[in-house]
Structure formats: C-alpha cells, structure tokens
C-alpha cells in the first residue's frame, strides 16, 4: 500500500508518494530568477544544494503565493531532478485502501489532471495523487 505525504494547495488535498519526498522544510529565503518560466518561484539553498522552488498554487492556476504568505516546501526527488514544491498546509501521511482509488473525474481542470496519477475518495475529501516525475521534470512553462 502506498504511503502518501499529503498537503493542501489552495483548498484541495494532494498527496505524493512518501518515497519521493526527501523532506519538508519551512519557508526559506528564495532568490528570484528573472525571465524564468512561469511557475518557477525561485532558487533556494538547501544545505549547499541549489533547489528550484515551484509555486504549486500558480501551477494549479490558483492565486500565486504573495510575498510573505505562509507556506511550506515539500522537497521532492524524482529521476535526476529535485525541486521544492510550495504548498499551503502540510497534512498527515496517509495510506488509503486500494478500493478507495478511482480514475480521475473528467471534471478536473486540465492543469491538475495532467499531473495526477489517481484520485482517492476519503471521508469528506478528495485526495489527488501527484506524479512526482511529472511535477519535477515537466517544463512548468505551460502558460
């Protein structure tokens, strides 16, 4: 059974395979990258490694994080890439039962649907499971 690290982006609940998550860090100083593709929020220093941070709200076509707005960074590793995902609240680690998983509904927004591998119906909530590779490696400049 897959263990998922969960968090909220806006009002929606997302999860990502725990094995892809290196760590979760608090807000960090981020250096902006002028002319970068939309969605790349900037670069941060993670113990000597330079990691790109992706504004997940912006990626999901929601209102981007404002300067100083509280958030967390989920450091995700996939393939040879590593990136920090800026998200709202961090949730718990969940392991939903197999029978809870469904195919993603057609009503999902495109930008969401292209990043998720499945959907789990929880009590009172819908958990969208992100594909770590696609999130990290895909060119986020899908304006």
């Amino acid at each position: 059974m897959m263990q998922l690290c969960t968090f909220r982006i806006g009002a929606d609940l997302y999860g990502i395979d725990v094995l892809s998550v290196q760590e979760v860090v608090r807000e960090q100083e981020v250096t902006r990258v002028p002319l970068a593709p939309a969605g790349i929020h900037g670069l941060m220093n993670l113990r000597g490694s330079i990691v790109s941070t992706i504004d997940m709200r912006q990626r999901m076509r929601l209102q981007p994080f404002a300067k100083g707005e509280p958030h967390s960074n989920v450091i995700v590793q996939a393939g040879n890439g590593i990136a920090g995902l800026m998200v709202d609240q961090i949730g718990e680690v969940l392991s939903p039962d197999e029978d809870r998983f469904e195919t993603p509904p057609a009503s999902l927004r495109r930008e969401v649907r292209e990043l998720i591998t499945g959907v789990a119906k929880l009590d009172g909530d819908l958990l969208l499971v992100l594909d770590p590779k696609r999130v990290v490696l895909e060119n986020v400049a899908d304006r």
Binding site: T31, V33, L35, A36, P37, I40, L43, N45, G48, S49, I50, V51, S52, G81, I82, A83, L137, N139, V140
Partner: peptide, 18 residues
C-alpha cells in the same frame, strides 16, 4: 553550480552559486 533542467535553457544565466 549548474542550474536545473527547467532553468538551464535561459541563455542569460551561466549557473548559480551560494
């Protein structure tokens, strides 16, 4: 330090440093 894939295409930057 080299920039990640997403940014290495930008011709104005040669990399980043701490």
């Amino acid at each position: 330090k080299p920039l990640g894939r997403e940014l290495s295409g930008l011709p104005v930057y040669a990399g980043a440093t701490i």
